[in-house]
Nucleic acid binder design. Structure first.
Lengths: 146, 146
DNA sequence: GTAACTGCAAAATATTTGCATCCTT
DNA sequence: AAGGATGCAAATATTTTGCAGTTAC
């Protein structure tokens, strides 16, 4: 008999997928599960590692792509050119991301966090430039590595 | 006889390389030249294209790596996972970058600018996190594409 | 049953490394 | 002359694509 937490999680996964018009498959559930278990963001490589030998590399690429398209996860640019993915909050949906929070990358453990409570500041641009999205990535030491 | 501007540029290139203890070679001069000619930032691919058939792909990789190590250029993370490189201001040197300005990526022409006059704002982090470097990338429409 | 999803194979790209040769100092 | 830089070849790594078989609905 599965544990309570597992059941709840499973329902949540299914709900998330259904909401976005995606069919419920093992790989999608497993990958979403990884995001839910994880405080921070995951790179493609992280997911491959943690999923074990379970999926084809290609499935991971395609699944992540679908999740980004549907607004289930968003990408976080990092200086080392490894894209990280993190779960979006509920306000995000297909075609419109509302991730106005900042991102934090720990120098020590290399974990990437979405700091949902820290709102991106207003940026005053020079004449002639008009701002759309503002992305802030702070690098430093996280709460677990102090 | 070369034009005045060419001579000045050439001297500037040589000075930049000498300051950083690098030997003066054609590829380094040419790549630096591309940065000086260019208002915005360049990706590895941009450089290959603009340099024509002049250099081996490997030379471009190695040259950019050296420039980053020496603090001649800095990297700009972007959402599409293509690293852009831009010239550093004079205060940068080996091991310490002082690029406290923000970066701007134009949605229309895809040019990346260093907005040297726009300083990165202070970010108030949650308890437990300590900030190091703050990277801000604004996406919008640039002065030439309005 | 049908459309969507996956896994495999393979192509296309991107990046790194070793080494012989050439260039800068 | 000596050390550093380049170019070529080749090894790795990453990402994309096509297609046949499988699964979800």
């Amino acid at each position: 008999m599965p544990k309570e937490a597992t059941i709840i999680n499973n329902n949540r996964l299914i709900k998330l997928l259904k909401q976005n018009g995606l069919s419920i498959t093992d790989s999608r559930k497993k990958i979403l599960q990884l995001f839910l278990e994880q405080d921070g963001a995951l790179s493609h490589g992280d997911i491959e590692k943690r999923a074990g030998e379970k999926f084809d590399r290609v499935t991971v690429y395609r699944t992540l792509q679908v999740f980004v398209d549907k607004g289930i996860v968003h990408t976080i640019p990092t200086a080392d050119n490894s894209i990280r993915y993190a779960l979006c909050k509920d306000e995000c949906g297909e075609g419109h991301h509302h991730d106005h929070h900042i991102h934090f990358v720990c120098d020590t453990c290399n974990t990437t966090y979405c700091l949902d409570d820290v709102v991106t500041p207003e940026i005053k641009l020079p004449k002639g430039y008009s701002a759309g999205h503002v992305e802030v990535v702070v690098e430093g030491v996280c709460k677990n590595c102090q």
